[in-house]
Amino acid sequence: MAGDLGGLRPRVDSVLHDGRSTWDEALVLFLERSGYTEESYHTFSYSPLRDESGDVVGVLCVVSEETQRVVTERRMATLRELGSDPGAVRAEAQFLRFSAEQLARNPHGLPFTLTYLFREDGSARLAASSGIGRDHPAAPDELEAGAAGPWPTARAWRGRTSVIALDDGRFGELSTACGAGGRVGPGRPDRPSPHPCSPGGSSVPPLARRAAK
């Protein structure tokens, strides 16, 4: 496991200099593990170690990983926001706009989203998006019926979920500002970050329309 831990040095120096304990809660770290860069969250506590005379001679650092908790809370918050009463939302366009706004509030878990509405012939049109420009190669306005790419309509039309690799030229540049909520723009992120990364894949789930009662 490797990563940039240089940001912890000021905390360690502070404990060595002041002799007082401190901590970082759910600190985001980008670590090289499992063969790729992974966004992770850890809580660090730093305590001074003293010798017999009471002088600070070292630091005890205890680390606990909180990635699962942070990610789970983030996902649950998105679900709550999507399920909240949108109030004045009545028309389809209003609901789509409301949903896109809620999804955009979770840029860490959902760097970008595209919502397509199917027509009767199996083709689809882009109805809403978040985190990505409408002029991006990955966000075509129209998807033909039975199209294989960039997003496969045939499987979604049949109610099946697809997972699509994003590492080929069909999708253009999808570098996002990891952990910073960057927005994907044509060829480059609109808000660069010290930790840019590229999504490796995307899920294409069908959303069934609830039958009218």
Rank of each mutant, 00 (worst) to 15 (best):
A156Y: 01
L166D: 03
L27E: 10
D135V: 15
A26S: 09
G172T: 00
A124I: 00
R9P: 02
S21G: 10
A211R: 13
P186H: 03
P192A: 08
G7D: 14
A104D: 11
E101P: 08
T72M: 04
P189G: 07
S14H: 12
V56I: 08
V62L: 15
G159L: 11
P86T: 03
V89L: 04
G200S: 10
L126I: 03
L27A: 08
Q68V: 15
L82K: 05
R11N: 15
P10V: 04
G187N: 10
L8Q: 01
E101H: 12
T72S: 14
F112V: 01
V56F: 00
G58T: 01
F98A: 06
E81R: 10
D85N: 13
A26G: 04
P186S: 02
D121T: 12
P137G: 03
A26Q: 14
T43G: 00
S193F: 08
F171Q: 02
G87M: 02
G7E: 14
T22Q: 11
L103I: 14
E144D: 12
L96P: 06
L16W: 03
S53P: 04
G201D: 03
L117D: 13
L110N: 12
S21P: 06
S162G: 01
G122T: 10
S123I: 01
A177K: 04
A177M: 08
A77L: 12
G159H: 06
G83L: 08
G182D: 05
S53C: 09
D4Q: 09
A148Y: 10
D13Y: 07
D13E: 15
G172P: 01
D141C: 04
D168F: 05
L79I: 15
L60Y: 00
A145Q: 07
G133Q: 15
P86K: 05
P10A: 04
S47I: 00
K213L: 08
S45W: 11
E32M: 12
R158G: 07
D55Q: 15
R105T: 06
S203C: 10
L8M: 08
A148P: 12
R50S: 10
E66S: 12
H42E: 01
E52V: 14
L82W: 04
Y36G: 13
P192K: 06
M76A: 10
P206H: 09
R75I: 09
Q94G: 15
E39K: 11
R50D: 07
G179S: 04
E120A: 14
L110T: 15
E142S: 08
L60P: 01
A147M: 08
A154R: 14
P86L: 03
E25D: 06
R210N: 05
H17F: 06
R191K: 07
G58V: 00
D18V: 13
S130C: 09
H42A: 12
A104K: 13
A165G: 12
T22H: 10
S130V: 02
P192D: 02
D24S: 09
P107I: 09
S193P: 11
L82N: 05
L143N: 01
R125V: 11
G182E: 02
I164C: 02
H108R: 11
P189I: 05
A208H: 06
V63P: 05
G169N: 13
P150R: 03
T176A: 15
L79S: 06
A100N: 02
T153E: 00
